[in-house]
Amino acid sequence: MQTTNQNQTALRGITGRRVLGAAGIAPATLGFAQGNVAPQAPDSGPCIDAGNLLVLPGIVDIHGDAFERSVMPRPGVSFPYGPALLDVDRQLLAHGITTEFHGVTLSWEGGLRGEAYALRMFEALAQLQPVLGASHKVHLRFEAYHLAGVDTAIQWMQEGRVSLLAINDHLPTMARRMNDDRKLAQYAERAECEMEAFRSRLRAASRHAQDVPAEMTRLIAAARAAHLPVASHDDPDAATRQHYHRHGCGIAEFPLTVEVAALARQLGDETVFGAPNVLRGKSHTGAPNATEMIAAGLCTVLASDYYYPAPLQAAFRLVQLGICDLPAAWHLVSRNPARAAGLRDRGLLMPGMRADAILVDDSEPGLPRVCAAIVNGEVRHATMALPTIDLADRASLAA
C-alpha cells in the first residue's frame, strides 16, 4: 500500500520499542500536534504502534539530481515535470527521504540544465504542492560561467523559489573533454543540441572568464541577503575553499581532496559527500572515499547525489562496517543536513520539531526497508497496514 493522504485517522502520535531520540535508541511514545512533535506524549487517541520497527527522523537530502532521469529517461526524450515529480515523490518516500533539495542546474549548457527546464520545475512544484507527500525544495546549482543567468538567479532567490545555492564550475572539465566525441555527444544530447553547437556554447561562455569572480561574488552576496545557505561544489584545492569561505559559503560540497575537506572542517564549514560513494566503496569521479572521510571526522553530511536509495542504505552500511553506531550514522542523513540547510525545524524527533519520521524494518542485514513515512504528522507512505492503539486503552490496562 502506498498513499499520500491518510489524514482521516487523525493520529495523535507514534509509539515503539526502538525510537531514535536525543538520548539514542530506546522505547518511546511521541505525540503529534499541528504537524510537530508535541512536548508531551498524548494520554489518549489513536497512535501508531511501530512495535520493533526502528522509528527514525526523516532523511533530509540536500543534494539530489536523480529527478533528471524521470524528466529525461533517455537522451533527447523528455516528459512533463508533473507526472515525473509525482513519480519522484513516491521514490523519495519509499527510501525514507521526507525533505528533498532538488539539484536544479542553471547553466550556459541549455537543455535539461537550462532556464526553461528550471522554470518547469518551479511551476510543477507549485502546482503539485497539495498532493506531494515529501517536502520538496530547490537547490540551485549555478554554473559559474553562465554570466547571462546571474540576474535571473538573483530574481529567483528574491522570489523565494530557491532554498539553497551552490556555485558549480564544470566548464574547465568539459573543455578538456571536447575532443572526446563520446563524452561530447552526451553533453550535447543533454543540452538538446548538435555537438558543434555545444562547442560553440562552451566557447561563448569561456570568453568572459575575467568577469566570473566578480559576478559570483555578487551572486553569493544576493543569496546571503536572502538568508540562503551557500555551497561551493567540487572545491579542487585549499585556496578555493578559503576563497568561498570568506564570501560566506559555509558548505563544501564534494571536496575533491582530503586536504580541502580537512580545511573546511577547521573553518567550521559543513562537508558533503555522496552516499553512493559509501555504498560503492569509492567515488565514481576519483574524489576521496566517503567512508574514510567519515571515519576521519571530515564528512558531516551524506547526500543522495544521483541515487535516492543511497542515504538510507549508506547509514546502515556504516554501522555494518563498524565505522559508527546508528545514531551517529543517522545524523549524517538527517540532523546534519537539516542544520547545513538552515532548517532548524527538522532532523531530530524532539518536542517542537516537525513530525517527520520513518519506520524501518532492519531485520534483514544490509537491506533496511522503509515501511512507512510520516511527514508533518501525517502518514504519506506505507507498505503495510500500520497497527494503531488507543493510548487511553493502554493506560487503563496498565492500571
Rank of each mutant, 00 (worst) to 15 (best):
A315T: 02
N168L: 07
Q127A: 15
A329L: 12
A385G: 14
R182Q: 06
E143T: 04
T29W: 01
L54P: 07
L132E: 07
E68W: 05
L125N: 04
A264S: 14
L349P: 01
D393L: 05
L132K: 05
D237K: 00
A185R: 14
L164Q: 06
V77D: 13
T29K: 00
E270Y: 01
S200N: 14
T29V: 09
V150H: 11
E194A: 15
E115T: 14
G24R: 12
I374A: 04
A166R: 06
A392H: 06
M195I: 09
R317C: 15
L349Q: 05
L54G: 07
K137A: 03
S135L: 07
L219S: 05
R344L: 12
G96Y: 03
G31N: 00
H146W: 08
V88W: 08
C324Y: 14
C299V: 06
P337G: 11
E196H: 13
L85Y: 11
P276M: 04
Q158R: 15
A153I: 02
R224Q: 13
Y117H: 13
A205E: 03
W108M: 03
V138K: 02
L56F: 10
G352W: 08
G352R: 04
P365C: 07
V88G: 02
E192V: 14
Y187F: 15
L267W: 02
I220A: 02
L326W: 07
G16E: 13
R90G: 07
G286C: 10
E159I: 03
A372D: 08
A134K: 11
D169E: 13
M174G: 00
V258A: 11
P311I: 03
R354W: 09
A197R: 12
A392C: 07
G76P: 05
L86Q: 14
A310Q: 04
A382R: 15
T383K: 04
E192A: 15
P42D: 00
V37F: 07
L147C: 14
G64K: 01
M1V: 08
A205M: 06
Q313Y: 09
L318S: 09
A221D: 10
Q155H: 07
T388L: 05
